[in-house]
Design a protein around this nucleic acid. Structure first.
Lengths: 157, 157
DNA sequence: CTCGTTGCAAATCATTTGCAATGGA
DNA sequence: TCCATTGCAAATGATTTGCAACGAG
């Protein structure tokens, strides 16, 4: 149920790249910010800000929620994160910036990543995007439905 | 900039179908609820609850926000609406329940519908969904980026 | 008559913001 | 030193909920 493929890059490599990018933009590298970046980029799921907060609370008991929000939004601005906002209660952030597919369960709000290779026949840029003169940044094919687990638990959708 | 194709069905036809469905499930048909349903299904965009509220304020000055939320969620439960929750401030509801594509502008949060025919090569069910044992309800291919208008306004993304 | 629906008001709660203090560069 | 960042607390604001009155079936 864990250890998915690290499609984008080895975590530490990516952490370094982000640190580099932060420096270049005049951002400062505080221990908190580093911990948040490391925790976030290391995840294979779609954590909420609060989840990241809890994750680093062990090392930094004093981090404030606002700090986590600030940092995550900075990452979004850098293009190193995507704010996935499902109908779920909290905002979810996705460290996976590759084109991929989301399977979103209507019952439990779980989000399952599927790499693009498994999405046979992705949409082509040529027609769709040029026609609308739209500059794509990230494509996330969202498929809403009910996941296997929820169906087996015969939870009413 | 308007009058897109009514892919799903003529509005009045669909309104009747929804009324039917509401009745069958033991729901009652109040004037307010009817107005909300009519207003919502008639739209070609992705209104917020507040937008619907304003739209019907002319006929029903006394409708409460909670009533609109209740009704929209009822429609979602019926499968006659989808809650599209972008990173935008408010929740957006989509009356288009056909498989389609969303072009979401990162600058102005606009959502542009594109019918499936224009999305050459849609994802196939067979592999992806069966592999994950996922029961699809609606596929919305979300492409985030910057729309033509925002790029011309050289608004920084 | 029953019970789903309404409207108002109050409650909720994730997220944002103001501001003084801190400490990287 | 300078100014981005932090943390706390207060503010924000969309959405939800409690409850009494209403009214469709």
């Amino acid at each position: 149920m864990d250890s998915g493929p690290a499609v984008t890059a080895p975590v530490e490599t990516r952490v370094n790249a982000v640190i580099q990018a932060l420096r270049e933009r005049g951002h400062r590298l505080t221990p908190q910010r580093l911990a948040i970046v490391r925790a976030f980029l290391g995840r294979e799921d779609h954590p909420t800000a609060e989840a990241i907060l809890e994750q680093i609370r062990g090392d930094f008991p004093m981090v404030a929620p606002s700090t986590v929000y600030h940092t995550l939004h900075t990452l979004v601005d850098l293009g190193e994160a995507v704010e996935v906002a499902p109908a779920a209660p909290h905002a979810r952030f996705d460290p996976n910036t590759d084109d991929h597919c989301h399977l979103i369960c209507l019952a439990c709000n779980s989000i399952t990543d599927v790499p693009l290779e498994q999405c046979h026949r992705p949409i082509e840029d040529s027609t769709l995007l040029k026609q609308h003169d739209f500059e794509p940044a990230l494509r996330v094919y969202q498929i809403s439905g009910v996941c296997s687990r929820c169906r087996k638990a015969d939870r009413p959708a």
